[in-house]
Design a protein around this nucleic acid. Structure first.
Length: 496
RNA sequence: GGUCUUGUGGCCGAGUGGCUAGGCAGAGCUCUGCAAAAGCUUCUACAGCGGUUCGAAUCCGCUCGAGACCUCCA
């Protein structure tokens, strides 16, 4: 097993990753609230944890990866007042809330598939776990850590801290500071303390999304679903919990409080937070209006874009930085990433086609062997150092040089020996495809390619070089295409 | 205002108390019918000012700039 180090937000240090029940790993990532299309910033977070999931699996762990869908409880605007995000969109578009949920869940899945993200092991939804959320709320009331107020239930932070709760530990907040800085719009009188957060909210008469509960009709608070679903599927304490940096407070802080309040122990061993994607130095977010939709990126149809960029180019671009750094999005950076990606993929194509050839009288040259070993080790060192994909990619580029040398004959495979050749091939292909999740994007521009061939076909036919003509027909046929040789024009079609 | 992060060459982006990250762009060479690709070589760095140290871009302090969070957010 590789010695993987992970930066734990809780300790603010890189720690050696040691799962509770190796080789099993429990990993939870906060998924999207499905009230709108996912933008590129969202994708960065999910790509980070997809890569982690892939790497853990690659080095031999059996990972149960849970990523939720939040389809209720997330409110518009500040505080615990305001409309439900999904409910609001439903009203605006005159649709059932579940239609909104379905539409944007579908979009989410489609986008992640385009970026070659693996589906999680379990993808639970908040509305599917209302019962669990009511139960947890009830437990917290019984333990004296929550109280009912006018049909809503709030988590009692003061009580929690009296019992050694350490609310604020994850995000480094100090309760007293939070209290003095609390905004006016909070605490509409229902809360004992402005910091208390909702576990269950009473539904006003016009509120669409509502469920019966011991406290009347209502809906669960935003943070509760993650606590219920993570502990249900991964246990009261599990290995990894990930999410965007902006969820650290209050969302993850509240998750800890709820779980620790309910079960008496810290729910998560390693907390991981990925940094933001920025545009011109500013966080990409829906509310700032500087967000890109993946579809706009693929089409190049956003005003800030000079051209279209493919999904793999963008994935590569994201992996070229470390997940805890902000990453700035710009045309120049994307263009450079596109070329870099193609260089890597050309290396991949070549590597797949290369086989070891043993030659008599050719000695192994230690210099080349050492360089390849160094490159391979560099890849693993990078990944093991808090998933530093940027360093891993640098290692891969060093290997590309060797692969190109083998390809052009500047280096013979017998000069590095069969063992090193195998190491090079296995590592290179495995890391690119299985860990980084990058693959060749086949050029599907068949029209332009075929029309060029048809032009040659026409010229050969005019010159009565029928052997060439037949050759081209055979070529088309072997690729599932037929040439349609009509009186007026020549065209191609798929062979039926 | 509070808490925290950050400032690397033309662009992006790693990293480390002393040893060339890498990609893109630029220059030269090799190869080549021409070109491309590829390989080799190479030019631009560590915001500013102090301090610690044999030695700091890397640690500390200050200044300046940028950003995030402080109950919308991945």
């Amino acid at each position: 097993m590789q010695p993987l180090k992970i930066y734990n937000t809780l300790s603010r240090e890189k720690e050696l990753f040691q799962p509770i029940n190796a080789p099993h790993v429990g990993m939870y990532v906060c998924g999207p609230t499905v009230y709108n299309y996912v933008h590129l910033g969202n994708v960065r977070t999910f790509t980070t944890f997809d890569t982690l999931y892939r790497y853990l699996t690659y080095i031999g762990y059996k990972v149960r990866y849970v990523r939720n869908i939040t389809d209720v409880g997330h409110l518009v605007g500040d505080g615990d007042e305001g409309e439900d995000k999904v409910g609001k969109m439903a009203k605006l578009e005159k649709l059932e809330p579940m239609e909104i949920v379905q539409r944007y869940t579908n979009d989410f899945h489609k986008v992640l598939e385009q970026f070659n993200l693996l589906p999680p092991s379990i993808e639970p939804s908040a509305t599917g776990h209302i019962v669990e959320q009511i139960q947890t709320t009830q437990t917290l009331i019984e333990k004296g850590l929550a109280y009912e107020s006018n049909g809503s239930v709030y988590f009692d932070i003061a009580k929690y801290n009296e019992q050694g709760g350490e609310y604020g530990k994850l995000s480094g907040r100090i309760i007293e500071d939070l209290l003095t800085e609390t905004r006016d719009l909070d605490g509409v009188g229902e809360k004992r303390n402005p910091l208390d957060f909702a576990l269950w909210k009473k539904a006003s008469p016009e509120h669409i999304m509502r469920w019966p509960s011991p406290w009347g009709d209502g809906f669960p608070g935003w943070h509760l679903e993650c606590t219920c679903m993570s502990t249900k599927y991964l246990g009261e304490t599990f290995d990894l919990h990930g999410g965007g940096m902006d969820l650290k407070f209050p969302h993850h802080e509240c998750e800890i409080a709820q779980a620790k309040g309910t079960y008496g122990i810290d729910p998560v061993r390693y907390w991981m937070h990925s940094n933001m994607l920025t545009v011109n130095g500013q966080k990409m977010s829906k509310s700032l209006g500087n967000s890109f939709l993946p579809s706009e990126l693929f089409a190049g149809s956003h005003p800030l874009l000079e051209q279209a960029y493919s999904p793999m180019t963008v994935r590569f671009f994201m992996l070229q930085s470390q997940y805890r750094s902000t990453l700035d999005f710009s045309n120049d950076a994307l263009k450079a990433a596109q070329k870099g990606y193609l260089r890597l993929i050309n290396g991949l194509r070549i590597m797949k086609g290369l086989e070891y050839v043993s030659e008599e009288g050719v000695d192994i040259e230690e210099k080349h062997v050492a360089e390849i070993q160094k490159g391979v080790q560099g890849c693993y060192d990078g990944l093991n150092d808090d998933l530093n994909t940027a360093v891993a990619i640098a290692g891969l580029f060093n290997l590309v040089k060797k692969i190109n040398q083998l390809y052009t004959g500047q280096l013979k495979s017998s000069q590095i020996g069969e063992e090193t050749f195998k190491l090079l091939k296995d590592t290179f292909i495995g890391l690119i495809e299985e860990v980084l999740g990058l693959h060749e994007e086949k050029n599907s521009n068949i029209d332009a390619f075929a029309s060029g061939m048809l032009e040659l076909y026409r010229e050969y036919k005019e010159a009565r070089q029928y052997d060439k003509v037949d050759q081209i027909r055979t070529y088309f046929k072997s690729n599932g295409l037929v040439i349609k040789d009509m009186k007026t024009r020549i065209d191609w079609a798929y062979e039926e």
